[in-house]
């Protein structure tokens, strides 16, 4: 009796897990298979590998200046990630380390701002950026994102685990506040930074709506904008789109595998 109920339980657990696995893996499979087939085959629902990969790549290269686009995307993502990590971790550290009467009120206000959707900020932001003469520049893409409330919050939480005695020890050793941040806090919180790197890099790499609004000329286009442009053609070439999608997925995937161990450690808490 217990044997049967155990089997039933396992059956349920494994079917749920299998379904979840299928749902997460299938898009990747579909993306890779699609890249090897023609647009017509994809529309028909062909799920096996075809022989059209090279032709798809060739057509993508004809339509898109891939090197340029990748350079734009990578430059924006790297600059955005570095600046966001620096500014937001500095803010998170400051919020946790420095006592002030209005600290919690300011922090609560920031958290409240998280609930304002980007769509509501889009237009005023664009007006601000263009009145500063920054429309159609990379600076305009990066600037609004570097003080990320979510990342500030994440760093503040992580800083709670940073021992105050380390800061005291560094003060006695003669370090100024900025040196403590740079030479003690940052290296000690390495895994927190690793986890944040993955999150921020992914956010800036995948960023679509704001670059779409603020970047207007073709030489400024990023990979997400290019993929979107490919889909809006009169007869979209799905094979080409899927090749571009694979290329767009690769950098974040590589970054994740490189930082995976640190990412997990960062999610669990940093200083040990």
């Amino acid at each position: 009796m217990t044997g049967t109920s155990k089997i039933t339980r396992y059956a349920i657990v494994y079917s749920v897990l299998s379904a979840a696995t299928f749902v997460s893996i299938f898009p990747f499979y579909w993306m890779i298979v699609g890249a090897t087939n023609t647009s017509a085959e994809i529309v028909k629902g062909k799920t096996s590998f075809g022989g059209n990969l090279l032709a798809n790549i060739e057509r993508l290269l004809e339509q898109v200046d891939l090197g340029r686009v990748f350079l734009n995307s990578a430059g924006l993502a790297v600059a955005g990630t570095l600046l966001t990590l620096l500014v937001s971790s500095l803010a998170g550290y400051g919020f946790e380390m420095f006592r002030s009467r209005i600290r919690e009120r300011i922090f609560a206000l920031l958290l409240l701002l998280l609930s304002v959707p980007f769509a509501a900020l889009m237009v005023p932001l664009f007006i601000m950026v263009s009145s500063a003469g920054l429309a159609n520049t990379f600076v305009a893409v990066v600037l609004p994102s570097i003080a990320s409330i979510f990342i500030i919050f994440y760093f503040r939480q992580a800083t709670k685990a940073f021992p105050g005695e380390l800061r005291d020890a560094a003060r006695i050793d003669g370090l100024r506040e900025w040196q403590i941040f740079l030479h003690v806090y940052m290296p000690a919180m390495r895994s927190t930074y690793a986890a944040a790197t993955i999150i921020v890099f992914m956010m800036s790499w995948n960023n679509f709506l704001w670059p779409l609004i603020v970047l207007q000329t073709p030489e400024h286009k990023t990979i997400t904008l290019v993929i979107s442009a490919l889909t809006s053609a009169y007869t979209p070439d799905f094979g080409v789109i899927l090749v571009a999608t694979i290329l767009a997925t690769l950098p974040t995937l590589v970054l994740f595998f490189v930082l995976q161990r640190q990412f997990v450690a960062g999610m669990l808490g940093s200083v040990k």
Binding site: P163, E165, L166, D168, A169, A170, I172, V184, P187, A188, R190, V271, K272
Partner: peptide, 11 residues
């Protein structure tokens, strides 16, 4: 100063 938690720089 010597601290209770030792406060050694972990890195």
């Amino acid at each position: 100063m010597v601290f209770q938690s030792y406060a050694l720089y972990p890195h």
